[in-house]
Design a binder for these strands. Structure first.
Lengths: 359, 359
DNA sequence: TTTAGCACTCAAAGAGTGAGAGTGCTAACG
DNA sequence: CGTTAGCACTCTCACTCTTTGAGTGCTAAA
C-alpha cells in the first residue's frame, strides 16, 4: 500500500462524504495535493478496488468506499482536527455550567449533538457496578401491603410494592430489616446475584415463611439496578438520510436493539461501529460514533451519535470527543454531588474517599 | 341525502379502504346490492362531491372520500359487526386470565392490537385523579440527604432524593412528617395544587426554613403523579403505509405530541379522530381509534390504535371495543386488586382485598 | 328518473434519444 | 519502470413523445 493510494482513498472518502455521489478519477485529480493525472489515479483506484477498499455501483460510475474502505479511513488515515476555541465555547454554553444537574448535563449534550450533527444522539448511563447498596427500607403502607425501598451509594432509588400473606409485627419487621441491612449494605451492585437472594430466602423463611416475597421483591429491584439506561433522541433526523432504511430506523428507535450490549463493551476513546458489522444493532448503512464519559475516573456512561456511514467524521468526532471530555470533567469536578457524599456511607459509615462507579 | 347516495358513499369508502385506489362509477355499480347503472352512480357521485364527501385526485380518476366523507361513514353509515366467538376466544387467550397483573394485561392488549391490525398500538394510563395520598415518608439516607416517598391509594409510588442545608433532628423530622401527613393524607390527586404547596412551604418555613426543599420535593412528586403515562408500540408498522409521512411518524413516536391531551378528553365508547382534525396530534393522514377502559366504574386508561385513515374500520373497531370491555371487566372483576383495597385508604386500616401494583 | 352513448381529459407506463460521466486498455513518453 | 494521453466503450439519467385506459360530464333517448 503505497502512500499515494492511501491519499487517493482518503480523497475518495472525503469527496463521497461531501457529495454523496460516486467519485471519479478526474474529480480526485483536481483536488488539492493531487499531482498526478486522472489516468494514474484510475490505475490506483482499480488497485484499491482489487484490495476491497473501493467499489463501483455500476461499470461507468465513479467509486465509493466499501466498509473496509471506511474502516481504513477512520482508523488509519483520517486525523480529526482539534476543535477551535469558539466551538468549544459554544459547546460549553450548550452544556451548562458546573452547577447543572448531571442528568440535565447529559441531556444537553445529546441536544447539542443532534443540533450540530443533524443525527440521532445516543446516551447511556452505565450500570453502576461498583456502587453499593446503602439502604434498604421496608415500609408498611396498608393491610399486608409493604413498600420496599432500595437505595445505592450512587443515588439510585428503586421502590416496589409487595403484598404478604400476613401482617408483620413491629419486631418481625425490625428483624427483617436488620437481617437485610446486615446482608446487603455495602454489597456492590455487581456482586448481587440470584443465588445470594436464594440463600436469603431460605434463611428468612426459616424464621417466618411469609417474609420471602419481600426478599424476592428486593431481588427484582436489584435486577432493575443492573438495567442500563438508554436514550435515543432526535431519531427523526435519521429519516432525512435516504441511505438508511426507514423501517430499520423506526424499529431501532422503538427497541434500541443491540445498542445496550454494544455500549457495555469496554473500550476507550472514540469508537466507531458500523451497523452492518454488528449482528444485533442493525440499521443497514449506519454508523455509531460513541465515547464514554467518566466520573471520578470511572466509566459513568456513554454518549454519541448514530448517523449514516457517509457522515462527516472529521467534523463529528471532535464534537463527541470534546463533549465526553467536558462532561467527565464537570462530573468529577470540585462540585459536591450526590455520589461523592453518599459514598462515604449512608447506613453504615464506610471508607473514605469518593464514590461508586466502575472499572 | 337520499338512501342510495349513502349506500354509494359507503361503497366508495369500502372499496377505497380495500384497494387504496380511487373508485370509479363502474366499480361501484358492479358491487353487490347496486342495481343501478354506472351513469346513475356518476350523477350521485357528482352530487356527493358537491356536498363535500368525495373528491377526485384529478379529473379523470375515480373518487376518494374526504375527511367529511370518512366522518359520515364512521359515525352514521357503517355498523361494525359483532366479533365472532372464536375471535373473542383468541383475544382472551392473548390477554391472559384474571390473574394477569394489570400492567401486563394492558401490554398484552397492545401487542394483540398491533398483531391483528398491523398498526401501532396506543396505551395510556389515566391520571388517577380520585386516588388519594395515602402515605408520605421522609427517610434520611446520608449527610443532609433525604429520600421522599409518596404513595397513593391506587398504588403509585414516587420517590425523590432531596438535599437540605442542615441535618434534621429526630424531632424535626417527626414534626415535619406529622405536619405533612396531616395536610396531605386523604387529599385526592386532583386537589393537589401549587398554591397548596406554596402555603405549606410558608407554614413549614416558619418552623424551620430549611424544610422547604422537602415540601418542594413533594410538590414535584405530586406533579409526577399527574403525568399521564403513555406508550406507543409497534410504531414501525406505520411506516409500511405510504399515505403517512415517515417524518411525522417518527417525530410522533419520539414525542407523542398532543396524544396525551387528546386522551385526557372525556368521551365514552369508541372514538375515532383524524390526525388532521387535531392541531397538536398531527400525523397527516392518520386515524386514531381509541376507547377507554374502566376499573370499578372509573376511567382507568385508554387503549387503541393509530393507523392510516384508510384503515379497515369495520374490522378494527370491534377489536378495540372488545379489548377495552374485556380489560374493564378483568380489572374490576371479582378478583382482588390493589386499588379496591387501597382506594379506601391504606394509612387508615379499612376493608379488604389484595394485590400490588406500583410505580 | 334512469340509462346508453360519446367526446374529452388526464395520469401512468413505455419507448426512444442524447448527453455526460467514467471506465479500461493501449501505446507513447521521460 | 511508472506515468500519461488518447480513445472506444459502457451505462445511467433526464427528457420527450406516444400510447393506453380508466373515468368523467353531458346530452338525448327510454
Amino acid at each position: 500500500m503505497d502512500d499515494r493510494k492511501l491519499r487517493i482513498l482518503a480523497a475518495v472518502v472525503d469527496e463521497y462524504i461531501r457529495t454523496g455521489e460516486p467519485v471519479g478519477s478526474k474529480a480526485v485529480s483536481k483536488l488539492d495535493g493531487m499531482r498526478v493525472s486522472p489516468a494514474t489515479i484510475r490505475n490506483d483506484m482499480a488497485a484499491l478496488e482489487q484490495l476491497g477498499y473501493l467499489e463501483q455501483p455500476h461499470t461507468s460510475a465513479g467509486r465509493i468506499p466499501t466498509f473496509a474502505g471506511y474502516r481504513l479511513y477512520i482508523d488509519k488515515i483520517m486525523s480529526p482536527p482539534d476543535l477551535p476555541d469558539e466551538e468549544k465555547h459554544r459547546l460549553d454554553m450548550m452544556l451548562g455550567g458546573s452547577d447543572t444537574p448531571e442528568e440535565l448535563l447529559v441531556r444537553n449534550a445529546a441536544a447539542a449533538l443532534t443540533e450540530l450533527t443533524q443525527c440521532a444522539a445516543v446516551v447511556s448511563k452505565a450500570v453502576p457496578r461498583f456502587s453499593v447498596i446503602s439502604k434498604v427500607e421496608v415500609i408498611p403502607t396498608g393491610k399486608r401491603l409493604y413498600v420496599i425501598l432500595l437505595i445505592t451509594s450512587n443515588g439510585s432509588i428503586k421502590n416496589k410494592a409487595c403484598r404478604l400473606e400476613f401482617d408483620l409485627s413491629a419486631e418481625q419487621l425490625e428483624f427483617f430489616t436488620h437481617y437485610i441491612e446486615e446482608n446487603l449494605s455495602g454489597v456492590s451492585v455487581d456482586e448481587l446475584s440470584e443465588e445470594m437472594f436464594d440463600k436469603m430466602v431460605a434463611a428468612v423463611s426459616a424464621y417466618m415463611v411469609s417474609l420471602s416475597p419481600l426478599v424476592k421483591g428486593i431481588c427484582e429491584l436489584s435486577e432493575d439496578l443492573r438495567q442500563q439506561e438508554l436514550t435515543v433522541s432526535g431519531g427523526e433526523k435519521l429519516l432525512s438520510c435516504d441511505e438508511l432504511d426507514k423501517m430499520e430506523v423506526v424499529r431501532f428507535i422503538e427497541h434500541k436493539n443491540g445498542l445496550s450490549e454494544l455500549l457495555e463493551d469496554t473500550f476507550s476513546g472514540i469508537q466507531v461501529r458500523f451497523g452492518a458489522e454488528s449482528s444485533s444493532f442493525a440499521i443497514g448503512n449506519s454508523s455509531l460514533i460513541v465515547s464514554k464519559y467518566k466520573k471520578d475516573g470511572r466509566e459513568a456512561g456513554s454518549l454519541g451519535i448514530i448517523g449514516p456511514m457517509r457522515i462527516d467524521y472529521k467534523k463529528v468526532i471532535p464534537y463527541v470527543d470534546y463533549l465526553t471530555e467536558k462532561i467527565s470533567s464537570l462530573m468529577s469536578g470540585g462540585d459536591e454531588d450526590f455520589d461523592q457524599e453518599t459514598a462515604d456511607g449512608i447506613s453504615e459509615p464506610q471508607k473514605g474517599a469518593s464514590d461508586d462507579g466502575n472499572r
